[in-house]
């Protein structure tokens, strides 16, 4: 058991790394999709730059949420300072606590990108409908926020456990 406990920090760190990595990659891909579609609209109508930019940036938030969870986890497990004495079970729990934002962050960023691209197409045709068009990708954000919330609660909760 003592030998296993040495791996606790490794699992906890893996969770933090994945939280920064996976939603970050997905957001980069998603923002790029929005950028490509946005560039198409701007080529034809440069006046739509502001509207298109907002839609492009919407799926970028998952990367930020992942970064936030990674930062909190790193603080809690002592990688950024303090004690890094974490049991094997606690390490696994930190890993599990990071999973909501890892999985939902990735998936929601890609899905939100598709909704954002569709909305950019709406702006291309009906710039006056920007307000309505923005709602559709924004709705996808709900699920990324829910995952973020659970990951924050779980990471903070795990730190208080005496195991």
């Amino acid at each position: 058991m003592k030998l296993l406990n040495e791996y606790g920090i490794a699992f906890a760190l893996l969770g933090a790394v994945l939280a920064a990595l996976v939603p970050g990659i997905a957001s980069a891909k998603a923002v790029s999709m929005g950028g490509v579609a946005g560039a198409g609209v701007i080529t034809e109508d440069p006046a739509q730059f502001g509207k298109v930019l907002i839609l492009q940036l919407l799926p970028g938030t998952q990367g930020i949420y992942g970064l936030l969870i990674a930062f909190i986890t790193l603080s809690q497990i002592g990688v950024l300072g303090g004690s890094s004495d974490i049991s094997f079970v606690k390490g696994l729990l930190y890993f599990a606590a990071c999973l909501p934002i890892v999985i939902v962050g990735y998936s929601s960023a890609i899905k939100q990108a598709k909704a954002a691209v569709a909305s950019i197409n709406v702006v291309a045709k009906r710039p006056d409908q920007f307000g309505k068009a923005m709602i559709f990708p924004a709705m996808v954000e709900t699920y990324a926020i829910l995952a973020l919330l659970i990951s924050i609660l779980a990471v903070n909760g795990v730190s208080g456990l005496n195991i």
Partner: peptide
């Protein structure tokens, strides 16, 4: 993606 966005404007 780029082509379709331009086509939307052209439509």
């Amino acid at each position: 993606l780029y082509a379709v966005a331009r086509i939307r404007s052209r439509e």
